[in-house]
């Protein structure tokens, strides 16, 4: 008998009725029913067509944040999110990412795999920096992708201030604050290809849009986003 990864309660042969009726393969249970119920899947709600957030009645589609993005940026970016960033998700991130409990990747890796199975686009995880890798020891995004094929095409730039201001052209200035760089030898792999960027949380959208801009610049035909939470 296994224990719930989140609360340690014994996992008896709990199986929701839905799992019995569904034709898809059974999902391995890693957490108990009460812990599972605390997360809020976004598939059952109306969501923003831009960032994937849960849309309330008053909210336009796309939401105001996404309308602002559309005005300011030169490309259209669409993100899908699987869960609402609610207190349970916040607590999960705290334990998985910040406390570094790598086992907890299994709480969502199957759900993500289910989402990505039919995906034909090239899957690219958002990277973590070398300092995070040295202390945390893992990239929380690739942890979630353990059952999927992905290409690590991006790096976190070591030093953002290597280029002097005067040396920047317009393109460079657009890239101002760009935290990422392409891994040089992999550049050609995405030429004219559809790319799906994966990250753990979409908060302001800045991070994932920086990554998307870079991939488009490198020749990707299209870039969409998938995040665990929004």
């Amino acid at each position: 008998m296994k224990d719930c990864l989140l609360c340690g309660a014994g996992l008896r042969n709990e199986m929701p009725l839905g799992d019995l009726i569904r034709l898809t393969p059974l999902r391995k249970r890693t957490i108990c029913e009460p812990c599972s119920a605390a997360f809020s899947p976004l598939e059952s709600f109306p969501t923003c067509s831009g960032c994937g957030r849960k849309r309330t009645k008053e909210m336009p589609d796309p939401c105001y944040d996404c309308q602002r993005w559309e005005k300011d940026s030169q490309f259209k970016f669409i993100n899908t999110a699987l869960f609402e960033y609610n207190p349970a998700m916040k607590d999960y991130m705290k334990r998985y990412k910040f406390a570094g409990d790598y086992r907890l990747r299994q709480v969502f890796s199957e759900r993500i795999h289910e989402q990505l199975r039919k995906q034909s686009a090239i899957i690219v995880p958002v990277p973590v920096g070398a300092d995070t890798m040295a202390t945390r020891g893992f990239n929380q995004v690739t942890g979630l992708l353990e059952s999927d094929r992905y290409l690590e095409l991006l790096n976190v730039r070591l030093d953002k201030k290597t280029i002097r201001q005067s040396e920047k052209n317009r393109q460079d200035r657009l890239m101002l604050g760009q935290p990422f760089e392409m891994m040089a030898p992999e550049k050609n792999q995405i030429k004219n290809q559809a790319v799906l960027l994966v990250d753990d949380v979409y908060t302001t959208g800045t991070t994932i849009r920086h990554a998307a801009a870079l991939l488009l610049q490198a020749g990707a035909a299209s870039v969409r986003g998938l995040t665990l939470a929004r």
Partner: peptide, 12 residues
């Protein structure tokens, strides 16, 4: 953990 590292999940 990745890269042949290990952590303790008991006293985390």
């Amino acid at each position: 953990l990745p890269n042949h590292h290990f952590y303790c999940y008991v006293c985390i």
